[in-house]
Each structure stands twice: as C-alpha cells, then as structure tokens.
C-alpha cells in the first residue's frame, strides 16, 4: 500500500511538472493572441481592453495558476478558430481516439501473445524462421502506409468499407466499430510484430534456465512448464514493452486518423497546429501527456502484482 501511495505521489508531481512545461512552452510563442482574435485592423484600445479581459497583463506565474485551476475545473479556454470552448470541441473526439487506441491495443494483445508463445514453443523450427522473416518485414512498414494499403485493398477494391465515410457512434454503433477495424489493425500490425519478437526471445531465454530443466525433470509436460514457469518470468519485460506500445499506439492514432479521415483528437490537433489555434493544441497536448504518464505509472504499479520480487524492495 505504501508503495502505491508513494507511486501516486510521484505521479502527481510528474503531472504538475508536465503542466508547467506545457504552459511555459506555449508562452514563448511569438505573436499576440489578441491580434488573432480581433484581426490586424483592431484599434489599440480594443486590444488593451481584450488583454485586460483575458488577463494577459498579469505575470506568467499568476496566469499559470489560473490556467491550472481552470484546467482542473474542465475549462480549457476558447478556441481561436472556432470561437467556442475547447472543452466542447474535444469532448466527443476524445472518445473516438480512445476507442481507436483501445481497439488497436486489444488487437495487439490478441495477435501477439499467442503467436509469440507458439513461436517460442516451436523455436528454431522452419515455421518459426519463416514467421521471423514476415515479422521483420511487417515491422519495417510504417503504419500510415499499411493504412493506405488497407484503404486500397479493403476499401476501394474489395469494398468492405467506404474510405472517408466515418460513421459516428450515435448513428450506428456497429458501423462505428466496423469503420475502426482497419485503422486499428493498421496501427496494431507493426506493433504486434515487435511484441511477438520480444515475447519469443524473452521466453526462449527463460527456457534455457535451470529452473525449467528442474520443472521438466519433475515430469511436467511442455505446455505446463511454459504456462506455469516460463511465462511468469518471460512476461515481465513484455509488460514494460506493452506500456511503451500503448503510448505509441496513442501517438500512432494521430497519424492513422489522417489516413482514414477519422474525426478524432489527432485530426483536430493537426488542423489546430496548422491553423495555430494554440488553446486547442495546448489542451490536447496536456491531455495526451496525462494519458502517456498514466500508462507508464499503471505499468509500474502492475509489476508489483506480476513480479513478486518487487514487493520486497
């Protein structure tokens, strides 16, 4: 319990650090938001009034605390380009990106763990070698190119889905999930290949340990040894890697949303970067950072349950 409390304490401190970084990073950007909001023809009086209204004349540290308290209350400021609250702009989109990332992560787990175990079980056999070549090939194809190939093969030729015709969840739940299958798979394929590779080698390494020989000598069957002894040890580095993978999937979904025209948070982030809509960029970056850090800390805490040795540290 003490371990978890300590971890949560460090977690909150890290979040605070990130919030400082994000806030001040966006303070150094040249250009006055008031000229953007009022246009270049605005009179100096009008600009001064708006600056006062937005609180831009206060010292940065006060503005930081104001931004932080507003952020915690769910008030993320107003978008320059859409002239509406950022919270309203992103609320529906976060769910779409989360659904895409979640589905993709589930695919990674479903594909990579059985394949990794099978490859370790039949390590050095011909099928293992062939799948190693495929593995290496898949790892080298960028997800957005896989997405484009999927669009062509499954969308345009086989007509399994209509590229660009995103179906909102409110319209049809099955249509929504159906549309996400190929984008999620495009992100999941290269990631799975990496997990397979790591899991296989981690298991093969464990299989040469003395405890495995002992387990065999006690008359355990091969699968029993793999499941009860090898897996328990081999899975630990894989969990670390899965946390990294989940983070990469979240980042990858930003790109894949472009390929498949999915109106998620990534697409909004990109259009806001190009349109220099800084309140939106700042909010999305903060939210993604929180997600990234949370994933890392959850992985950290989960070791305690996977690897009993950590409890005594």
């Amino acid at each position: 319990m003490k371990y978890i409390l300590k971890k949560i304490g460090i977690f909150l401190l890290t979040l605070l650090g990130i919030s400082v970084l994000v806030f001040f990073a966006f303070q150094v950007i040249p250009g006055d938001p008031t000229t953007r909001m009022l246009g270049t023809t605005a009179t100096p009086e009008k600009i001064a009034a708006l600056r006062e209204q937005l609180g831009l004349n206060d010292p940065a540290i006060i503005r930081y605390f104001r931004w932080l308290t507003d952020f915690l209350k769910g008030d993320f400021g107003t978008s320059y380009s859409y002239n509406m609250p950022v919270s309203k702009l992103i609320s529906g989109k976060i769910a779409i990106t989360a659904a895409l990332s979640g589905m993709s992560f589930a695919m990674v787990l479903v594909m990579s763990i059985p394949i990794g175990i099978l490859r370790a079980r039949f390590a050095h056999s011909i099928p293992d070698r062939i799948s190693m070549i495929f593995n290496q090939l898949i790892m080298s194809v960028p997800p957005f190119f896989i997405g484009i190939i999927f669009t062509y093969v499954f969308g345009l030729v086989l007509k399994l889905f209509t590229p660009g015709d995103f179906i909102p969840h409110s319209e049809s739940a099955s249509g929504f999930w159906g549309y996400l299958v190929f984008p999620a798979l495009a992100i999941a394929l290269p990631k799975s290949a990496m997990v397979v590779k790591l899991l296989r080698s981690s298991m093969v390494r464990e299989m040469s340990e003395d405890y495995v020989r002992t387990a065999y000598s006690r008359g355990n069957s091969r699968w029993q040894v793999l499941r009860r002894h090898v897996m328990r040890n081999a899975i630990i580095p894989v969990v670390t890697f899965l946390a990294v993978t989940l983070v990469d999937i979240i980042a990858g979904s930003i790109i894949i949303e472009q390929v498949f025209a999915i109106p998620g948070i990534g697409r909004l982030l990109l259009s806001s970067i190009i349109g220099r809509d800084l309140p939106v960029v700042q909010t999305i970056i903060t939210i993604i950072s929180i997600a990234v850090i949370s994933v890392n800390y959850i992985a950290d805490i989960s070791y305690k349950y996977i690897d009993p040795r950590i409890r005594f540290r």
Partner: peptide, 18 residues
C-alpha cells in the same frame, strides 16, 4: 527518462506547433 517516455512523433508535433 521523462523525454523518452513520450513518442518522438508526438514531441516533434509539439515543437513544430511552436
């Protein structure tokens, strides 16, 4: 550690937005 926890494309996006 803190920097490498973030995917590089994401960080690049942040910097480019600035």
């Amino acid at each position: 550690d803190a920097v490498t926890a973030f995917p590089s494309v994401l960080l690049a996006l942040v910097v480019v937005s600035i």
